[in-house]
Design a protein around this nucleic acid. Sequence first.
DNA 1: TTGAAAGCGCTAACAC
DNA 2: GTGTTAGCGCTTTCAA
Lengths: 344, 344
Amino acid sequence: MATTNRPRRVTIDDVARAAGVSRQTVSRAINDKPEIDPATRQRILAAAQRMGYRPSRFARGMVRQSTTTLGLVIADVLNPFFPEVVAGVLEAADARGWHVAVYTTASRIAREQEVAETVIDHADACVAFLLDDAAIARIASSGLPFVLLGNEDRPVQAPTVRIDFGSGIRQAFAHLVSRGHRRIAMIDDRARAESGTNDVRSTLFTEVAAEFDLPVEPGWRQLADNSVAGGADAMERLLTTAPEITAVVSYNDMIAIGAMRHALARGHAVPADLAFVGFDGLALGELVDPPLTTLAIDKHRLGRAAVEQVADQMAGTTGGSAGGSANGTPDTVIRTELVVRGST
Amino acid sequence: MATTNRPRRVTIDDVARAAGVSRQTVSRAINDKPEIDPATRQRILAAAQRMGYRPSRFARGMVRQSTTTLGLVIADVLNPFFPEVVAGVLEAADARGWHVAVYTTASRIAREQEVAETVIDHADACVAFLLDDAAIARIASSGLPFVLLGNEDRPVQAPTVRIDFGSGIRQAFAHLVSRGHRRIAMIDDRARAESGTNDVRSTLFTEVAAEFDLPVEPGWRQLADNSVAGGADAMERLLTTAPEITAVVSYNDMIAIGAMRHALARGHAVPADLAFVGFDGLALGELVDPPLTTLAIDKHRLGRAAVEQVADQMAGTTGGSAGGSANGTPDTVIRTELVVRGST
DNA sequence: TTGAAAGCGCTAACAC
DNA sequence: GTGTTAGCGCTTTCAA
């Protein structure tokens, strides 16, 4: 008989056999159904425990048509921007009884595409921060309800919760100009600058400067890795190639903080010699010295909005309307708010 | 015929019917199997896309005995301690091809128990930061491979990756004493202090002070919410009830930073009038002014170690050895390293 | 209170 | 290249 060495998993039938009841009765015991003799239940539960039985979540999932798992794709948990978004996503997902599986990409193209495949197979919906067009298109066309977290100005082929980056940068320039600055540099995110097929991003800086009638020299725009260290590196380059600048606008707060600290370490006074504006409004920005002027965005709301939007998609997925992208839900735009602190 | 209004999901059979092939052929098309006519595949894929067909991950999971989902339970994504642990967990999980579902508890008892049930039902393994004994026991006895993330000195009934909190606090005191401090206060975490059945935690402070032959007055130990604001509140109380103290040891860096900033705001000089020691070694601690002296722990390694330990459990789960807790794997202990910076 | 039958949606094995 | 037959492990009828 098939009693010995099998590495097979313990099933409900095994427990049933061991307890001398039908599989159905085991199911009743496991699921706390009322219609069962207390003694039988005890016996079954004991057997199950002894045998190390655990119900298969797949088998259960098949039969009860319920659980939703949201795939949440972010670049990096260590950048404090993402935890705040994640908090919003978790809250909104939890409110719907959804589970949230988190994946990180480190903004690497290959990894993004890998994660895209994974999510398509294993999630029921997806909220993603993604740079690679192919990865985005892949998910969008898979039919998976999908919302992109974006801060590009260029349009993408998927429903998006969008941060209004361009208008944020304009606010930053307006603020700096009002403080008397005319020679403003920008430190942008390398991963983002180097991704994407079209070039909207790299011209933004020039455009905005032009709007304010400001000069722009080559070397006034530097790319940085998305971290404090990356910001410091970029600042070092800036101090060398463009010592004439008096203010720096950064892609985000992490980079801005790195840049500011580096300037400070090099003996520059902030904001007297050099002013710094960040982007994101991280809690962290209040704790550094001087506290960072920043374009704050409601990251928690960003996460919530994204979940709401996928939820809408799922509700609206009535039989035939497939295709992924051409969904009725309009993009949500999250606006920035200038928070002036000590660094300007 | 059953063609009209049913809210049922689109199945492989629906696609098969629509494309005029067998369900197996649809499966071949969807899964990119080689043995299929390119034309047929195109036709099927088109139909699938049009109908919005998405394979059921449950049905797939049933038949291919593979995917592992790790349930990761943490208190709060917004406390920078956790993202660093999460990064380690994600890395180690990804290396094994596991998925990671994240749940937060806000350290609320009721929520912890709720999450425990969820995880038992929906994960194949669990790494959890949990305070409530009942929640811990529930998971441990469910048979789910389980590792607890802990910093208690008291033993718990589950395999644990443990932070050596007690010895960390001793290092802090030793350091402060060597700097000439004799009147040292402690700000502890409220949620943790108020959880747990036995009282090891509340006596630690007194014990350590005694070891160093230091006085302890009532009011020298304050409880704080686990945040910067919580630390500030506790510091306010400390300044009122115990103005004689010259140093403060905190449960973690967030609280320490809050406390330090509040002292600064109240006009005290740091470290001249008041010294501060944190616990965790957050990146954040280097960015504040003055930079925070702290007991650093390798949080990334903590996360990795936890995953390795559950993985061991899963490998060792041979048929009969159930029960949950009495597993062979010894607890891992993560030691602290004193990082001296400007706050002392 | 318990058991037997049916089927959730899919893929692996074997036919054809 | 394509179809048929079996299940994967569970819960939901329905009978006993």
